[in-house]
Computed example of a mutant assay.
Amino acid sequence: MERMRRLRVNEAMRSLVRETDLRKTDLVYPVFIMEGENIKNPIDSMPGIYQYSIDCFEEELDKILESGIQAILIFGIPSHKDEVGSQAYDENGIVQKAIRYIKKRAPGLLVIADICLCEYTSHGHCGLIKNGEVLNDETLPLLAKMAVSAAKAGADIIAPSDMMDGRVKAIREALDQSGFYNLMIMAYSAKYASGYYSPFRDAAHSAPSFGDRKTYQMDSSNLKEAMRECQSDIEEGADVIMIKPALAYLDVIKEAANRFDHPIAAYNVSGEYSMVKAAAANGWIDERKIVMENLIGIKRAGAKIIITYHALDAARWLEEESC
């Protein structure tokens, strides 16, 4: 008889043969920065997550630095929105100001700039609108302009999340023409039109004012199409490809990891976070066990980078386990 339980007799043995390890350096923490002063707004649908004005972000930044997490993903909430999302690519826009502040305060922290117009447009869509249609090609120059403005502010990684066709190529060319040859692009390559985003839209004030995003974000039924999206982004110059959401799309992460040599990122999104928080608040689950199991599952599927709102908690738990 083969006795597999020999590998599980105690924690030391389990640790010795463990196949998948989660590390602090795998984690990216998303943050929401908004225009204004003296703002620390709790997001009701995302317990423990806040919107910060820049002047109130120092304490949170200190926590991030102390946690050992090496990267954050910034989402900006502007005071003004218009049809063309002009604050997205304004050199004094909220994200640009936040990047400059963070890089001055914490130069070693990797700052990832989300590149999309949805938080900045009055209609809430990720591109320009004409007669109710989201325009693809006309949106690309604005995304490229936003990427360059974030690069000039000091961003370390550019992360286009809009799902317009050809946007990675447009952004790569614009970055190179501006001298940012070494700036990495982490593309939201397989971003699905998911119900798991609802709490994020509360946090980022980015819900579309009409229709939905199914004409540009992916159909949740499709795996082969996701691989075509990933391949296209790689050919256009993406350095990292991302799958979003994570938990309902572990098969997509696994397929991408098996097929491509590029690093894989996965976004453990707001709805996935909020469900765990709600169940834990009701005493139905052990939050720590569930979070760590979810993150290990994402890593085991093939993700090297995990973007998660659980990052600060997970970093603390990993520290406790190492002591």
Score class of each variant (00 low, 15 high):
I305V: 13
Y273P: 10
R172K: 14
R259H: 04
M164D: 01
P160V: 09
F180V: 02
I129C: 03
A12I: 15
P160W: 01
L61S: 06
A98K: 04
G179K: 02
I77M: 07
A257M: 10
I158K: 04
V276P: 14
L143H: 03
P199A: 06
E91I: 03
D212F: 02
N131H: 12
A106I: 03
A256S: 13
R288A: 15
L183N: 07
A301V: 10
V84C: 07
V31P: 03
I264T: 06
N182H: 11
D233E: 12
V168A: 03
A278F: 06
C230G: 01
I102C: 00
Q96F: 01
L73Q: 15
A174T: 03
I102N: 03
A147Y: 01
A155Y: 00
E60I: 05
R316Q: 08
N182T: 10
A279C: 13
R167Y: 03
M46A: 04
S198A: 13
L247T: 11
V269G: 06
L117Y: 06
A203E: 14
N136V: 09
A153V: 03
W284Q: 13
M292D: 02
E272L: 08
E272N: 11
I102E: 00
I234E: 06
F180M: 02
R8D: 07
A257H: 13
C116S: 15
M146E: 15
E235D: 14
H262M: 13
G48T: 14
S198L: 09
D21K: 14
D82T: 02
R18L: 02
G166C: 05
I99Q: 00
Y101T: 01
R259P: 00
K277R: 13
A265C: 08
N222K: 15
L16D: 13
S232W: 12
D82R: 08
G93K: 07
S220K: 14
L27D: 06
